[in-house]
Structures are given as structure tokens and as C-alpha cells.
Design a binder for these strands. Structure first.
Lengths: 353, 353
DNA sequence: CGTGATTGTGGGAGCGCTCCCACTAGGCTT
DNA sequence: AAGCCTAGTGGGAGCGCTCCCACAATCACG
């Protein structure tokens, strides 16, 4: 016994057993077509008999790749992912990776120090690709990835001009549908509580609101897909939140002060909707009687609110799947073709409107 | 340009630059004490100048280890982890691993096929250790791990006799405190909605309930830490749920039918508490006026229920941290010393009792 | 029947580390 | 002064793969 030898069979042993050379075994394992059926069968039999499993480290070393991708989560965001959103994304990614032998590395980035460390990581090519969740407008990581020519896929995008590959939900369409629904139900003074407008996702949802209002001839919102430019009448129906419950509260109070006659509210997140709902209760407004309410995300909170919150669902698991698929494609073809995928959202109707 | 050479400096280049041998550089990197200060300084300078980062694959191949641990999540459970619970555990693990250069591999196990695959994985020693989340009573994975002598730490345990290392919350104590609180507030006919009793965690929480009832001289629950044996009077105050909202509903209806005078309910999870709360509302019972309610987990749902739910908080992030720490220790010392850690819980008081 | 392409194959030469053996230089003992 | 530690060091020999070159066998063609 060698002592350091782990007892696992090696490729070499498989070769001996199958009566072929190392090269042939390697070719079989990697699915090369340049192998005779006879040799292939012999090798496969030997692999089965020996219970051979290739050594990942050796492969990585010799092949200059890692068969691993990193899922990067900036720490401040982690809380947001307490929602099904995160686990659904992960489930999707996992499902797509299941048939591959890609490993999924979980990388939390908390501090600037860890960020730098991760930069080194990437530079040292310790992963074949990167999935990046919850990117901020000013996040330099995507640019770093691009510069290193590291295959990468974002969940969401930083702006309309995003160059790195991404998979995003149709935030504009979802918001538009939500607001259109409020209007369909007869609401006329429909307000919105936005997310922080330095986030693309917040701007997109605001755009959707504006479009729906303009479609209905209400408010002064600018239609069209442009940036958040409009400042016509109706701006007083727009209050800025920050995706937190407290932000939702503040924004709702503000709206109530500015337009006591508001009869519908589209909150750009369920959490903010929950905040708004609390304020409405305090102020003695009934939901949906006096004020109808729609959220965004279709989170657990939406289902457990009283009344249950109508909300826009994102195809979260599908987004995860798609992210993984796109990344694998990008890794496979070495050319840097960027892909931009936008998946449809769906309005889930409950009792709040 | 070599083409296959990635351009990253190697240990050899560092050695040349520092004017020392390969062995010395390796010793510096691995923190061996057998290096002179002079050599160490020279090597460190060379590393900094060259921006050297060790090649993980080469290390793994030569050193017969991987510097990676797997976080294993059985798929059926994933939904449960939509709650902060999961992300908190991960955050804790991440925090503990941050200063290490251990990688965290995320492994979802969905199908028996994937389970088998993961078995191979382990057998091939592709990770140095395993963190296992949400183990079921009959889960064979921990036994497999033990048999392979693979360092492993469970989140929770399968039974009181668990041999594999684990980190668990004090479920008995938490439940006991919750029920004691109900009793303190003057409730006398306190019922409990249990989880599936083939899960240890559900039995432990039921034990806590029994102990608190016995302490107060109420019900016929058996005190003491033994198994779920008691079947005295008061059993009609115990209804079985399954940790789902629907299960909570069913159990609450059952309780109401058996004991219409029930005035307090301890639900073994927030989700079941939400189900119970819905039924209570339907039946026209006020919470906490007519029936006081306590949950377990202190999830987002608890905060957003109406009234906000008093619940037992687990030190989730701390559990994650501890799991990682225990695993690292187990990996470091090659001896198979099993560790069992139980962390205290805390009652978070809100409006439902 | 030669010439050249094509298919299949074996095995050498690394990939970048760690392990460990051999060796030097100096300090301590007796 | 001779011996014997010990601290410190260099570098050979792998770890288990992939890549690729060389070569044999087979085939198609004129």
C-alpha cells in the first residue's frame, strides 16, 4: 500500500484493464468520436467494473479549466433573498446543471476585501464562468468580468445599455399589467411607490406604471420605453420608496398627504406594499374598498397579507434555469457572444384589488 | 506565447524571483515554521510583485485534498428554505469560511439518481467535508458519510441518538418557553399543532410543550426528556400538522372541534400558525382575545401576520457559523471526534399572545 | 500498384503543486 | 576536537489527467 494512494482507480488502471492506451480511455470519457466501437465498449466495461470516477483536480490541472461556475451574491442583498426568489433561482440553476458535471460554487461578497479576493479568484481562472445576482448600477464586477473575458450572466441588468449577458424579468410589462388591472377595476387616481431609482429594476417598474397610465389617458406619465424623464402632471402620484417596509410606509403617508383621494396603489415590491397596507390601516382606509393595492414579486408576504395581495409574479425558477443555460452556452463556444433574455411576468390576482 | 500557458505566475517563477528553491516558497505559502525570516520576506515580496495566486487544481492534485466543502440540500426541502432560515444559515457559513480559502459547493439533491451521483462524488473524495441541511429520520446520507469517514456536520439531527456531528437549536427549550409564556398570560387550555412526528424536530417541540404543561400542572403531558410516549389526558389538545399552511388549517379545525374552549395554541412552525390563524378568523375567534397564538421560527410571515405573531427565534446565522466551524475542526484533526452542539432559542414577543 | 488521405491508436510531455529525501551550516554537547 | 543534533534549504519524484505527435492500418483514387 502506497499510503498516499487513495485507492481510487485511475485512468491508467482503466486503460490496462480495457487493454487499450491512456489516450483511448481519455477519448471515451470525453466523448470523442474518434474511437472504434470495440475500444469504446471495452473501456466502458472497465470503467463500470472498476467504478472509475475521473479525478477532477487532475482534469482541471491538465485541461486548464475547472468545471465549476460561481454564483456570486453581494452580501447586502442577501436579506432580499430570504424570499422564495432566491431559492427559486437556485433551484432553477441546480436543475439546469444537474445533467452537467459542473459544480456550483457559492460566493458571498460582504466586504471590499472579499471583493478584491474574488477579483484574484477570477484572475486566477478558478471558475469557468460566473452567475451574478442582484447587480447594482455602479457595480464594477460585471466590467471586471468582461475585461477578463470571463463568461458571465447577470440576473437583471444595470441599465438598458447592459453589455454583459443577462436574464431579466419583464419588469416594464409586469408593472404595466398591474396598473392596467387597477384601472380596469375602475380606479382612477392610481399612485405608485417606486423602488430606489438608482436601480434599473425600479426605473423599469416605474416606466411600466407610466405607460399604463398614459395608455388609459390618466396622469401625465410619459409613455414609451425611454428613460425616466417625464415630469408632467401626475408626478404627485409617484412616491419614492426603497424596497423596504419602512420605505413603503413613508411613501404611503406622503401619497396620502398629497392626494387624499388616491384610490389605487401599485407598489414596486411586496414588502413596500406591506408597509403601505399598514399605513392605510392606521388611517382607516379599507383595502381594497377604499384603496386597491398591487405589489410586485409574488412573495410569501403577498399570500399572507390581509387581504391577500395581488402581485406580479416573475418566472423565478425559469430565470435560474435560463441563466445557467446561457452561461453554459457561453462557456462552450469560446467566442464572446452576449445574450440578453427577458422573460414574461404574470399578474397573480388575489383580494387586494 | 505558449498558448496554453495562462500567463499566471507559478510557484516556480516566484522561487526564481525570490532567489530560493520551490520547496521554500511552498513552505512559506503553507505557513511552515521551518523557514528563515530572510527567506520568508524574500518570498513574500516576490509573491506581491508577481501577484502570485496558487493554482488550486495543482494543489488539490498534489496534496490529495480539495479545499472545498459541500453544502447539501435535499430538494424537497428547498421550499422551506425560502424563509430567512436558509439565507441566514448560508450567511453564517459564508462568514465562517471567509477567512479560510475553503470553497463552498452547493449541491441540490432532487432525485435518487442525483443522490447516487453524490455518493460517487463523496467516494471520489472530491470535497473535504459535508454540511447537511434538513436531514430526515430515514436519511441514509449521514450513515454513508460516516462509513466513508468523511467529515460531516448536520443541521439538526435525526434522533436523540444521532452519532454524526450536528448543530441544532434548542427545540425543546424553545417550545417549553413558548408554552410557558402562554400559561403565564393566563391561558389554561393550551393546545399544540405539531409537525410531522417522524421528524425529530417536531417531536422535540412537542416534548417542550408537554414539559411546560406538566410544569404548570396542566394537561397530561409527560415531562422529562424521553421520547414521545405519554398518552394521558390532554392528548386531545395535541393535533398533528405537517409544517404546511394547509396542515395548520386542518389541525386547527380539529382542535376547535375537540375542544371548543381552547384559549391558547402553540404551533410548531409559523407557517402552520398562519394556517391556524386563518381558521380562527373564519370561526370568528379573535387573536389574541379569544385564542392566543405562538409560532416557531420567527420567519417573515410572523412579522407580517395580523396580529404580528409571537414566535420562537432560532439563532440561525450562528448555527451556520457553528456548523462551518465544527466542520473545519473535524477536517483539521483527522481523528473522528463527533461534536454535538445545541444552541439556545429565544421567544420573540409580538401581539398574538 | 503506388500515392495520399483518413481513421484509430499508444504514449511522451507536460499542467503546478506537495512531499520528502538529501544535504549544508551552525550550535551544542562531552 | 570530534561527534551529533537541529534549523534551513534545494530539488527530484510524483499526483492523474489532457494534449498532441507519431505511427499503423485501412481506404480511395488515378
Amino acid at each position: 500500500m502506497n499510503g498516499r494512494h487513495s485507492g481510487r482507480p485511475t485512468l491508467e488502471e482503466v486503460a490496462v484493464r480495457a487493454g487499450v492506451g491512456r489516450g483511448t480511455v481519455s477519448r471515451v470519457i470525453n466523448g470523442s468520436p474518434r474511437v472504434s466501437d470495440r475500444a469504446k465498449a471495452a473501456v466502458e466495461a472497465a470503467i463500470a467494473e472498476l467504478g472509475y470516477v475521473p479525478n477532477r483536480a487532475a482534469r482541471a490541472l491538465a485541461g486548464n479549466r475547472t468545471d465549476a461556475i460561481a454564483l456570486v451574491i453581494p452580501e447586502p442583498e442577501t436579506r432580499l433573498f430570504a424570499e422564495p426568489y432566491f431559492s427559486d433561482i437556485i433551484r432553477g440553476i441546480g436543475a439546469e446543471l444537474a445533467d452537467t458535471d459542473m459544480q456550483l460554487l457559492l460566493t458571498l461578497i460582504r466586504t471590499p476585501k472579499e471583493r478584491a479576493r474574488f477579483g484574484q479568484y477570477l484572475a486566477a481562472h478558478r471558475v469557468d464562468g460566473v452567475l451574478l445576482v442582484s447587480v447594482h448600477e455602479d457595480d464594477p464586477l460585471p466590467d471586471l468580468l468582461e475585461q477578463l473575458e470571463m463568461p458571465a450572466v447577470l440576473n437583471g441588468r444595470r441599465s438598458d445599455l447592459e453589455s454583459v449577458s443577462y436574464v431579466d424579468a419583464d419588469n416594464v410589462g409586469g408593472a404595466r399589467a398591474a396598473v392596467a388591472h387597477l384601472i380596469d377595476r375602475g380606479r382612477r387616481r392610481v399612485a405608485t411607490i417606486t423602488g430606489p431609482l438608482d436601480m434599473y429594476v425600479a426605473r423599469a417598474r416605474l416606466d411600466g406604471y407610466r405607460q399604463a397610465m398614459a395608455d388609459a389617458g390618466l396622469g401625465g406619465g410619459a409613455a414609451g420605453g425611454g428613460a425616466t424623464g417625464g415630469s408632467g402632471a401626475g408626478e404627485e402620484l409617484i412616491a419614492a420608496g426603497d424596497f423596504t417596509e419602512e420605505g413603503g410606509r413613508r411613501a404611503m403617508r406622503e401619497l396620502l398627504a398629497r392626494r387624499p383621494d388616491v384610490d389605487g396603489v401599485f407598489a414596486a415590491s411586496d414588502v413596500m406594499a406591506a408597509g403601505a397596507r399598514a399605513v392605510l390601516r392606521e388611517e382607516g382606509r379599507r383595502v381594497p374598498g377604499d384603496v386597491a393595492l398591487v405589489g410586485f414579486e409574488d412573495s410569501a408576504i403577498a399570500r399572507h397579507m390581509d387581504p391577500a395581495l395581488t402581485s406580479v409574479r416573475q418566472p423565478t425558477e425559469e430565470m435560474g434555469r435560463t441563466m445557467a443555460r446561457v452561461l453554459l452556452e457561453e462557456i462552450a463556444e469560446r467566442a464572446a457572444v452576449r445574450r440578453h433574455v427577458v422573460l414574461a411576468t404574470e399578474l397573480v390576482q388575489r383580494e387586494s384589488v
